[in-house]
Computed example of a mutant assay.
Amino acid sequence: MEDQELIQQLQQGNAEAFDQAYKKYAPSMLTIAYTFMRDRDDAADVVQDCFATLLNKPQLWKSIRDIRWYLMRMVQNQCLGVIRKRDMQQQKDEVFQYYNKSAAEDVSLPESYNNNATPQEKENKVVSWLSALSPQRKRAMELVYQQELSYQEAALKMGISKQSIKTHLRYAKQILKSKLTSILIAAVFVTMW
């Protein structure tokens, strides 16, 4: 079946045409996805996601003029989206781990100070630091770092803009960092005297 005829059949909701499109273009899409993802299973997931989107949104077929170009571009965009999401998640995990480790374990404190604080006292300190944040900053931290929502998802949940989420997180990190710094300074003075 020629591409134009295939597109017409897809626009009419023909399931057999959908199967033919999958058989015809999935191998090429898989090759493109693999070049981005560098993992066969991830590449296959991306291709399946593309076809699932087209299956669940049949209105998309109405805008397609060149099916090959559209599918190849779709798989490329899907791969870039997955990679971006992974990078964002990795960055969030690193930031969360840094603040979690710094606040909960007081890793930079002198040994004499660390021996005096129990794990429960350290945990209480972190909880008190978080409670010192404004409700919106605390909520932003919870949504992004604990519930692992994207900035956009957190913004929608809080009813504010994505930029506002970023601002709340930046100020919350500054507050937590200043509290940690003040404890470090106090610990240095304790060990000096």
Score class of each variant (00 low, 15 high):
M1Q: 04
D3F: 00
Q4Y: 03
F18T: 05
K23A: 15
S28N: 09
L30I: 01
I32Q: 03
M37V: 02
D41F: 08
D42N: 08
A43T: 04
V46C: 10
V47W: 06
F51N: 07
L54A: 06
K62N: 11
R68V: 00
R68K: 15
W69S: 14
M72I: 07
R73I: 03
R73C: 03
L80E: 06
K85G: 01
R86W: 05
R86G: 03
M88D: 13
Q97L: 11
Q97V: 04
Y98T: 07
Y98G: 01
N100P: 01
N100M: 09
K101A: 09
S102A: 13
S102D: 08
A103Y: 01
V107T: 11
P110H: 10
E111Q: 13
S112D: 13
N115L: 11
A117G: 00
T118P: 07
P119K: 08
P119I: 09
N124T: 03
L133G: 08
L133K: 06
P135V: 10
P135E: 14
E142P: 01
L143Q: 03
Q147F: 07
E148G: 01
Q152R: 14
A155Q: 07
L156Q: 11
K162C: 04
K162N: 14
Q163K: 13
I165K: 02
R170G: 00
I175W: 06
K179F: 13
I183L: 15
L184H: 10
T191Q: 15
M192E: 14
